[in-house]
Structure formats: structure tokens, C-alpha cells
Nucleic acid binder design. Structure first.
Lengths: 183, 183
DNA sequence: ACCTGAACACCGTTCAAGT
DNA sequence: ACCTGAACACCGTTCAAGT
């Protein structure tokens, strides 16, 4: 009936795995799970014990970034009109996607998982908040939902390296124009 | 100095590979190259001799479909105003993407290859023709190009099975609204 | 309970040997 | 010239053995 002393190093392993994953993700975009395990100094099985799928691991790596995006939505709404808030939020998503190349893929994977659980997930909810405000406002089309916008944002994962400056922001304005109510 | 008699069965192998690939692509969406070779009754090396990359093979499988899309563009332009022509062409792309699940992935892979060869490729050219007509017409934004639209169309590859009816066409109208000149 | 890492499974790719 | 298919490389995943 001793306290679960072993839990300590299990938690430490978990931390080390996330740390190693972060390093690998930040470096070359080849994310090999066995390499992460090796870097973390744990067996492959340990990695799988903590993170049953690749997506679970990536979700954890980008958890902080996703949280920031989620909490930013209501803040932006408090300070700006809905369309401006949406515009800035999307710009922030694009910035994350550019600087942390894997974040959008992780977000999309998470959204996918949430969808199959019949939930929008935190990112979907944040986006829905922005869109709903715009709908109430009359500035956003009534027939557009969070999933629509997430699907369109997927272009960010397919941009070639040299295209960011020319297209990332630009396509955001095209999407916003499409989402807007007709003037 | 005899005629290259061997060429005959080489060409036949090539056909059989394409045929087998078509069958596999139409069936389960797991496209395993070794399985295609096996189905075609050829060695794996033979497959690689004819198609150096997976993309080359897929491009060949969908060549006919791509050709149809390419030739449809000028026809639609001859019969309709530019915006209507663009709308119908995009609808056709979406239909292909739904019925032949792999076609858009193949198209995107082809476009990617063409891009690195500093060319737009046939699909890009067809789309550019439609967009240019709209720009001349004043119905399409001057700052949108074929690559922009192809990037946005990528959502078609990420739709879940049940989402086609609800979102495929709908998102097309959102994109068109974004591409349009402001009224 | 948790960890390890050898071993398995899988699939793309190559290449020595054949015709 | 072209073809074959065993073999290699690679990476995700499992599981028997250890602590």
C-alpha cells in the first residue's frame, strides 16, 4: 500500500518523450517515432504506452499552441468587431502554421479525431464562436460553419516553401471574402 | 539489325500495369505498388522501369480524366460567360474528385511536379484560361491565379465520406464568392 | 506497474541473375 | 533490351522478458 512511487519516473519518461518529439518536430520534418524514443532514451514500447497513436503525441507537442489559439478567439471578439476578430484569428493561425510547420497538421488530425467523436473539438469551438458572432452581426454568411473554414485552411499545409510570403496571407483574404455576407 | 521485337511485350507489360493500377485504385484506396505489380503479373522491377515514381503511375491512370478536364475549359468558355464557365468547370472537378477518389490527389501531385519544372502544367493552364477570361471580363479578381484556386480545391481530398453531399458543392460556392470581383 | 529492445510486419526500392 | 523476384532498407508496432 505504498504510494505509487513508480509513477514518478513514468511521468518523467512522458516528459522526456514530449521534449524529444518537440525537438524532432522543430528540426527535420521527418518525424520518426523510433527516433523520438531513442532521443528520449526510452524503449519504443514506452512511447506507445504513453501515446497510442502518432496523433496523440503530436497533439501533446502542440497543445500549448492550440490552447493559445483557442483562448485568443474570445479575447479578439471582446476587442474587435466579429469580422476583424475572425480576420486576425485566421492570420494568427497562418503564422503558427508557417513558424511551426507541423501545427496545422496536428490541428487537422485533432479535428478529425474530434469529428469522429461527434464533437467539434476546442479549435472548432473557437472558430465557431467567431463565425457565430459574425452571423449575428450580419457580416458572415449564415451557411458557413467551422468545419468549412478548417477545410479551406488546409491549403496552408500544402504550400511550397517559397510560397508563404506570396500566398499564405493572400489566400486568407480570398477565403474571408468567400465567407463574408454579400455587401 | 532486326526490328525491336521485344518492345512489343514491354508495351504490353506497361498496359497491364496501368490496367492493374486502375483496378486497385478503383477498389480499396490502399494503393500498394507491389500489389499492382503482382496483379499485373510482372516483377516489381518492371513496374519501376516503366514508372519511376508513384506519381508517374497515378498520372497515367488518370490521364484520360485530366485530359477531359483540360479540354473542357475552352469549350465551356465558348458557350458561357467566364464566371459561369469557371463555375461549371469547378463543379466538374468536384464530380471527378467524388467519383474517382484518387483523381484530385493525382492532379495535385502532377501540379506539384509541374511547378518544380517552372510550368503550370495542363490543369493549371486550363484553369488560368478560365480565370484570365474572368479577369478580362471584370468578374474575377485580378490578384487570383490558378495555383491559388488549386490550393483551395485541396479540401476535396480531405472530405470525410459522409461530407460530400453537404460540403463539396457548398464550399465551391464559397470559393467562387472569394474569387469574384466585389460587386 | 512500468520499461526494454529484439523481433515482426509491411512496403517501397534495388540489383544480380536470367532470357 | 527487358524481365524477374529475392533481398535490402526502413519504420511502425508488438510482446516476452526483465525490474
Amino acid at each position: 500500500m505504498t504510494a505509487p512511487r513508480r509513477r514518478a519516473d513514468a511521468a518523467e519518461n512522458r516528459e522526456r518523450i514530449i521534449e524529444a518529439a518537440r525537438a524532432v518536430v522543430a528540426g527535420a520534418d521527418e518525424v520518426r517515432l523510433n527516433e523520438i524514443a531513442k532521443r528520449a532514451g526510452v524503449g519504443q514500447g514506452t512511447l506507445y504506452r504513453h501515446f497510442p497513436t502518432r496523433e496523440h503525441l503530436l497533439a501533446e507537442v502542440y497543445r500549448q499552441d492550440v490552447d493559445e489559439l483557442v483562448t485568443a478567439a474570445p479575447k479578439l471578439l471582446a476587442e474587435h468587431d466579429p469580422l476583424t476578430a475572425l480576420t486576425r484569428w485566421l492570420a494568427r493561425v497562418a503564422d503558427y502554421a508557417q513558424v511551426k510547420r507541423g501545427v496545422l497538421a496536428a490541428v487537422e488530425a485533432g479535428v478529425r479525431r474530434d469529428l469522429s467523436a461527434h464533437s467539434q473539438g476546442p479549435i472548432g469551438d473557437a472558430l465557431a464562436t467567431l463565425l457565430d458572432a459574425g452571423k449575428a452581426d450580419g457580416t458572415v454568411r449564415q451557411d458557413v460553419d467551422a468545419r468549412d473554414v478548417i477545410l479551406l485552411l488546409g491549403y496552408l499545409t500544402r504550400l511550397e516553401d517559397g510560397e508563404w510570403d506570396g500566398r499564405a496571407r493572400h489566400l486568407l483574404t480570398v477565403i474571408l471574402e468567400g465567407v463574408r455576407s454579400r455587401g
